[in-house]
């Protein structure tokens, strides 16, 4: 199990999942449900458990999980309508990692498809552009932890590229490059954002 030592994989399993106890639970009334009046948890009780407790209990048919709030019908409606603007982090900081684990357990085809669709939409409409660029990105707060890691992987690499390209360029005079940039931009060259970003970068360094 190569994910055993992975911090995010661990934290994703902290997500609360509503379950119904099919069997009772001896001595754990209060532990499983603060409102419980008896020492033992009675059969049929609905409680919220952290996900890490669920798979084994489910395998043994001791609990039946229900869909957690973060995968509610309404969530998918928003994701479908405006994939770029959905604050997935607010629904669940480990939206995809937890989602993958949860579908693996339930084998819920519909949920599986929704997750894949959501990832694809967010990846192409939000992540690619932001990850392979160094210009300011204002939507970080919308990202799940997994998306944020992808974003940083891309941006770190872009930043390292700029650092590399303009390192030890003491002799590269600003005047030359910036002047040339302006000339070309005025001439209707493409990609002004990117070039501007690089120009700025150069100015800062020299």
């Amino acid at each position: 199990m190569s994910r055993y030592f992975d911090i995010d994989s661990f934290l994703a399993e902290q997500t609360r999942v509503p379950v119904v106890f099919n069997s009772g639970c001896t001595g754990l009334g209060k532990e499983m449900d603060k409102m419980c009046q008896t020492r033992d948890l009675p059969m049929g009780e609905e409680v919220e458990l952290p996900f890490w407790l669920v798979p084994k209990l489910f395998e043994q048919n001791m609990v039946g999980p229900k869909m957690p709030d973060c995968f509610d019908e309404r969530v998918w409606q928003v994701v479908e309508a405006e994939p770029k603007n959905v604050p997935l982090r607010d629904f669940n900081p480990h939206f995809f990692e937890f989602g993958a684990r949860f579908t693996e357990l339930l084998r819920d085809e519909e949920l599986h498809e929704q997750l894949e669709k959501a990832f694809t939409a967010r990846y192409s409409k939000l992540l690619v552009g932001a990850a392979l660029s160094t210009s300011e990105f204002k939507d970080r707060h919308l990202l799940s932890r997994e998306e944020e890691k992808l974003l940083d992987a891309g941006r770190d690499s872009m930043k390292a590229f700029h650092d590399w390209k303009y390192s030890t360029t003491e002799k590269l005079t600003v005047a030359h490059t910036v002047k040339a940039n302006k000339k070309r931009r005025a001439g209707g060259a493409y990609g002004s954002n990117q070039r501007r970003a690089m120009g700025d970068n150069l100015t800062n360094r020299v």
Binding site: T26, L28, M32, W52, K56, M62
Partner: peptide, 14 residues
């Protein structure tokens, strides 16, 4: 009994 087994399993997982 299933409720005893469930309790054992919960403690074990914990």
């Amino acid at each position: 009994a299933p409720e005893d087994a469930a309790a054992i399993l919960v403690h074990h997982q914990a």
